[in-house]
Amino acid sequence: MSGPGPIEFGLVVLIMAAAIRAHVAQATFAAALGFIAYGLLLGLVWVRLGTVDVALTAATVGAMTGVLLLSAATRMRAGERAAILERPGPALRGLIAVLCIAVSAAIALVVLMPADPAPTLAPAAAANNLHATGVGNPVTAVLMAYRAIDTLLVNVVLLIAVVAVWSMAPDSLWGGRPGPTPVRQDNEALTFLARLLPPIAVGVGIYLLWNDINEPGGAFQGGAILAAMWILARMAGLVDAPAIGRLSLRLALVSGPVVFLTAGFAGFALAEGFLAYPSGWERPVIIVINSAMTLTVAVTLAMLLEGPPTRPPSPPLAGMPTAQDAKRGER
């Protein structure tokens, strides 16, 4: 492999600068902006390393994390001054710095002392049964076939995270809509982008989903891009968040795990066991699971960014009249 060139060193310097900026900036808002730059630059590193699947996910999700932190920073400006006073003293800071450098040095040592040849079972696994999954992209093969149970559990954990975020809402707002009421922006560039980009991005998202069979892409990447478009349209005030009690929203949230589990249990009857796909049908089964997962990932990420409900449900929901009545009685 050729040595690092100016692009590599430039990226390293820029990333370190963005990461340090995210630490030392006075205002949390500025720090969050530094973090967005950091996330996008890291995405470039993943492209340079040839791991495009990771780059797609990292860049999209990194930007979303940045938006999440930015919106939180604007809502919490009041307490910033008081918090700065709690910074640990110089002696303790020095000790922490030394220990953190030790952690970095230990990791650096591992990086610089590679096992040669690197231990990997990839060629053996690929030679034996990659073709049997009917999938050409090895990352998709790992996510959907070799380690399908991990992917299923990640889907479930995302769902649990949404439930946990929703549960941060005060009781009176349960079942309501999250986030601020949409206000149509006068900013024409934003409105224009929010109208122009989503149709293109829906195409890109579906392409990534379909394409992951042989090329980089997949449910997580496609879902993340779809969720990003929702946030864009939401910021422009073109759409409003759904009430969290809505049945269609809840169905969309559970569709991925439900389809995945159905396919998993069907494996007992049609193939060798749990999450085993019937021979000859691997590819169509993976596409169906991936489609449902893309929907779940997109809706889950969008709901995670929306946060807990902030507005009471305007028409009382049919499903939970007793809880609402009880809350009204308390007030």
């Binding site: 990292a58 999440l68 939180a72 919490m76 990839a122 975020v165 941060m168 990447q221 990932v297 960014l305």
Partner: peptide, 26 residues
């Protein structure tokens, strides 16, 4: 591909954890 798949799922987990932490903080 195995570490790559793990990193992709880990990135999703990190976002979920961050969203929960921000919600608790707010």
């Amino acid at each position: 591909p195995v570490p790559q798949a793990f990193v992709i799922t880990a990135i999703m987990m990190a976002l979920a954890g961050t969203a929960l932490a921000v919600a608790i903080m707010l």
